[in-house]
């Protein structure tokens, strides 16, 4: 279990005077669901972009599946699936066609891509909508199609950026269950960012808490509770509030 698949060392990203991510150290183990938690603008998305080599760190280093995404982005992208926040599809194509296109971009043979796409559509509950244009899809359906799209390349790691925002509660439960099954059945490592405490609490093995570009706390819920609340089985919300209060105090000093 303790096999590290994502490792960030002193990762920093500055935009002019503004530091979006500051000296971030983080490791994610193989086969776990890791939650990046923090308010909007805390630097979660920027961190994710650096993990994929979609933006370069100002200093520090990221290692994803043993590779440096700034140096070898193609190999990283071959192994890592990424679902951006508010994912988009080619609206004049059907859901199936969108998946097949992703298959082609990944160099998957046509026949295998067909089989995989149908299989995945079934898994995310979109078999009926496979031949409908994605312009007719609802937000929740898009999100599920996005997950299927990410899985087309059979990744080792999937990174989801705010995958749950804007889905209704029922869709949400389905989505989170899906993540759990994926982890259990395929042994996937899943990293997902969110600002919803409860969702993170429900599915994540370990959590990293982001405030203003810095990682304030990192560990399993149990560990965090003991560390910050000095008692076991505290809710994540309490921990979070405690950390924010602590942050405010240090700022005053």
């Amino acid at each position: 279990m303790q096999n590290t698949v994502i490792e960030l060392k002193e990762l920093t990203r500055r935009y002019g005077d503004f530091t979006a991510v500051r000296s971030l150290n983080l490791s994610v183990h193989k086969g776990e669901i890791f939650g990046l938690l923090g308010p909007n603008g805390a630097g979660k998305s920027t961190t994710i972009l650096m993990m994929l080599g979609l933006t370069e760190p100002s200093s520090g280093k990221a290692l994803v599946a043993g590779l440096d995404p700034a140096r070898n982005p193609l190999e990283v992208k071959r192994r890592v699936g990424y679902l951006p926040e508010d994912v988009g599809f080619y609206d004049n194509r059907t859901g199936l066609e969108n998946l097949l296109y992703t298959g082609r971009l990944n160099g998957i043979p046509e026949k295998e891509a067909q089989a995989r796409a149908h299989n995945l559509l079934k898994k995310v509950g979109l078999s009926d909508a496979a031949h409908k244009k994605t312009s007719t899809y609802s937000r929740g359906m898009r999100q599920r199609l996005g997950l299927a799209d990410v899985l087309m390349k059979q990744p080792e790691i999937i990174i989801l950026d705010e995958p749950t925002s804007g889905i209704d509660p029922q869709g949400l439960r389905f989505f989170l269950d899906l993540l759990r099954t994926l982890r259990k059945e395929e042994g996937l490592t899943i990293l997902f960012s969110s600002h919803h405490l409860q969702q993170v609490e429900q599915v994540c093995d370990r959590v990293g808490l982001f405030v203003q570009g810095q990682l304030r706390a990192c560990g399993s819920l149990q560990e965090l509770s003991e560390q910050w609340l000095k008692r076991p089985n505290g809710a994540l919300e309490e921990v979070y509030n405690c950390i924010l209060a602590h942050q405010l105090e240090t700022e005053k000093l």
Binding site: L52, L54, L74, K77, V80, Y82, P84, V87, L105, N106
Partner: peptide
């Protein structure tokens, strides 16, 4: 962003 996260 979805396109660029593919290995191309």
């Amino acid at each position: 962003s979805r396109l660029l996260s593919q290995p191309i």
